[in-house]
Amino acid sequence: MESTITEQQARDKVEQYIQGALSALPAGAELKPFTRNRSECTDPTDKGPLGRFEISATYEIVGLDSASFAEHFTAITQWWESHAFKILTDSRPTDQYVFARNTGDAFDMSIKANDLGKFYVGATSPCVWPNGTPEPQALEATAPEQPVAAPPEPEPVRKPRRAPVDDEDFAQTNWTDGGTSF
């Protein structure tokens, strides 16, 4: 298994890329934290082992004129192109959304705006080991599969608490006086 950058290095690079996108915007634009995540790579695109994480952050960019959002999209996509990002999804003009991946390190970035005048930029790392090297449990998981535990014991067969009621007896029971008559 290959080593990766550490989670902290991934977090720093996410922030570096977001700051880079911000630098493409006019003075007065500021970052307002929106989300920060550490998500386990349960279905990694590189088919790698479990135990790795993606680090991501999204910021709202405040201080922008919503009438100029198209210009801001252009400015950020130009910054991406000059920093080895390849645009993979551009939903404009239907939606104000663009998604790109860095061809050198596989970090993803996106920009999105909405009709409420909100403008967001986000970045996500590829799957990384917390400390940069495979965790011991991940190394063990690649060993040949061996039974971990004995198969579960079957449920005990449950016997009825009383004998089944015969339809004839049921019909002949006198339910009004608490007794039976045959």
Results as ranks from 00 to 15, higher is better:
89 T>N: 13
70 A>S: 15
113 A>P: 03
124 T>F: 00
37 N>G: 01
96 Q>C: 10
59 Y>N: 11
44 P>C: 06
92 R>Y: 10
96 Q>I: 10
126 P>K: 02
127 C>A: 08
117 G>Y: 06
116 L>F: 14
122 G>Q: 06
94 T>G: 04
81 E>D: 13
41 C>L: 07
120 Y>P: 02
58 T>F: 01
41 C>P: 03
42 T>R: 07
75 A>T: 12
123 A>I: 03
50 L>Q: 02
66 S>A: 14
90 D>I: 12
44 P>W: 05
46 D>Q: 01
122 G>T: 03
93 P>I: 14
114 N>M: 11
51 G>D: 06
54 E>Q: 09
98 V>A: 08
44 P>D: 07
109 M>C: 09
125 S>I: 04
66 S>Q: 15
64 L>S: 01
105 D>H: 07
78 Q>A: 14
127 C>K: 03
67 A>Q: 15
81 E>V: 05
77 T>R: 08
35 T>G: 00
51 G>S: 07
93 P>E: 15
62 V>P: 01
103 T>Q: 12
118 K>F: 12
127 C>V: 08
81 E>N: 13
81 E>S: 12
117 G>H: 05
55 I>R: 00
71 E>N: 15
56 S>V: 07
43 D>R: 12
106 A>W: 07
94 T>R: 12
63 G>S: 10
104 G>A: 14
46 D>H: 02
65 D>P: 05
46 D>P: 01
86 K>Q: 11
79 W>V: 08
92 R>V: 14
60 E>Y: 01
73 F>V: 09
37 N>P: 00
83 H>L: 12
65 D>A: 13
40 E>C: 00
37 N>A: 06
105 D>M: 10
64 L>F: 05
82 S>W: 04
62 V>W: 02
94 T>Q: 13
69 F>C: 07
125 S>K: 03
69 F>P: 05
108 D>N: 08
39 S>N: 03
78 Q>W: 06
74 T>P: 02
113 A>R: 03
68 S>L: 15
82 S>G: 10
70 A>K: 13
73 F>K: 09
77 T>M: 12
59 Y>T: 01
97 Y>K: 09
75 A>I: 13
87 I>H: 01
76 I>D: 03
54 E>T: 08
118 K>D: 13
58 T>K: 07
